[in-house]
Nucleic acid binder design. Structure first.
Length: 429
DNA sequence: TCTGGGGTCCTTATTCGT
DNA sequence: TCTGACGAATAAGGACCC
């Protein structure tokens, strides 16, 4: 799933286990564990008949992209983030599956539970990867970091039927790169004394935060390897990339990374967005979609006990230009109607007409809902109670059980031009 | 080739209060 | 009373990550 799979492989063999065992892992408390082709592997585990076939998981619609491809599919050139249409051309015999996130979440929770038996210092980055700081667990487990890594790989395979790769290193960044280079089904140990030997030959794109754009800008001035960034004068990097980015990259390239594993990560924003199968001009249809997305976002806030003060919408036009507009409310909210009302206002007042391919809603400035709101937003209280009742019904009878009247009937985003007109933009509570 | 959906973080500009 | 400086909050956009 990551980009480190594209990095050069020739230089990594010295970090694998040799006849004398693993390289020196003293002072290497950081582990990065990454499931190999996670979504595809889980799907194959569920359907063993797919084992010897190329499997691609992702959006199966005309505008879908690949989320995960097994290694067989990758031999045909299929990569994650590639349009599904392109993947079909490259590998027409592959099995194309839509993602089933609930299943991946379940497997992910099981794998995280294994990590947490080893150490409480576990920082999940996504469903399929996590950092572990094992420094405090070594004595109890009577092993070394490499031993922990090997144990994790065995248990994940035995208990969940999927394969993961592990990077062991002195810092998060090194561990993360190492797991990427260990793939598939491998482990790499980068000794503390060999950080720069390991990092410096890699391309700048290996640096966390360097994507296509930044790599191009660096290449324009002759910086192509991590060693080049480490050797570049910091003031020059600052002028090129801005202070924060320059200092971040220079530190990483020089092997400095003192970030600790952070077991709890507070969410900063929650949202939902959707790309239409065909572009839409029709504002009424866009508004119905905003209602659906507001509902999803608000339900997600309520499920986590969060409220947010800033509501933003995102509109992507046919030519891929993307704008966002935001409004900050007096009081944080988790009420569908309030989020929807704000989103509609932003759409009506601040977005130009045009063919729209994507629309989204997001709520920012999150906090846990406090009792101080009761007096201030009394008119919202009725809506909140209605939302909560709907949440309860949905958890009992399924997500389709309760929907605003405006959303009854066909899904507007999939239905095309024959969609009946909506009766009202807002349902009654 | 034709670009998802969930997010995070950074930069720059503007506004507002003191 | 006018003006400017400054910091915080807000808004918009872009790049990046998985």
């Amino acid at each position: 799933m990551g980009r480190s799979g594209d990095l050069p492989r020739g230089l990594v063999e010295r970090y694998r286990a040799g006849p004398d065992g693993w390289p020196d892992d003293t002072g290497c408390p950081m582990l990065h564990v990454d499931m190999d082709a996670f979504y595809a592997s889980v799907e194959i585990r569920e359907r063993p008949e797919l084992v010897d076939r190329p499997v691609v998981v992702g959006g199966v619609g005309v505008r879908g992209v690949v989320s995960s491809a097994n290694y067989l599919a990758r031999t045909f050139g299929v990569r994650s983030a590639m349009p599904t249409s392109q993947a079909r051309r490259l590998c027409p015999q592959a099995v194309f599956l839509p993602p089933t996130f609930a299943l991946y979440q379940e497997v992910s929770a099981g794998v995280l539970a294994i990590f947490r038996e080893i150490t409480p210092l576990v920082e999940p980055l996504s469903l399929d990867e996590a950092f572990l700081d094992v420094s405090g667990a070594l004595r109890r487990l009577r092993t070394t970091p490499a031993g922990v890594g090997a144990r994790i790989r065995e248990r994940v395979r035995a208990e969940h039927g999927i394969v993961c790769s592990v990077g062991v290193g002195p810092t998060k960044f090194v561990a993360k790169l190492a797991s990427g280079l260990a793939k598939p089904d491998g482990m790499l140990v980068v000794p503390r004394g060999e950080i720069t030997d390991f990092l410096h030959p890699l391309p700048v794109s290996a640096l966390w935060g360097v994507g296509k754009r930044t790599a191009e800008r660096l290449a324009d001035v002759g910086l192509e390897r991590v060693a080049d960034v480490a050797a570049a004068p910091l003031p020059r990097l600052r002028r090129m990339l801005g202070v924060a980015m320059a200092e971040h990259l220079h530190a990483l390239a020089s092997g400095h990374d003192d970030r600790a594993v952070q077991p709890s990560n507070v969410e900063k924003s929650i949202g939902a967005e959707e790309t239409f199968e065909v572009d839409h001009f029709d504002r009424a249809l866009l508004k119905r979609e905003l209602l659906r997305l507001s509902e999803r976002t608000a339900a997600s806030l309520r499920a986590r006990g969060l409220r947010g003060r800033t509501v933003s919408i995102k509109v992507r036009y046919a030519d891929f230009t993307t704008i966002s507009r935001a409004k900050t409310l007096m009081v944080a909210t988790d009420v569908t109607q309030e989020i929807y009302r704000t989103a509609i206002q932003l759409l009506d007042e601040q977005t130009p007409p045009g063919a729209v391919r994507l629309i989204g809603v997001r709520v920012e400035q999150l906090g846990t809902g406090g009792s101080e709101q009761l007096a201030l937003d009394a008119p919202e209280q009725g809506w909140r109670e209605a939302d909560q009742a709907a949440d309860r019904a949905r958890s009992k009878f399924g997500t389709a059980a309760i929907r605003p009247a405006a959303l009854l009937g066909n899904r507007p985003d999939r239905a095309g031009a024959t969609e009946p007109k909506p009766d009202k933009p807002a349902p009654a509570p």
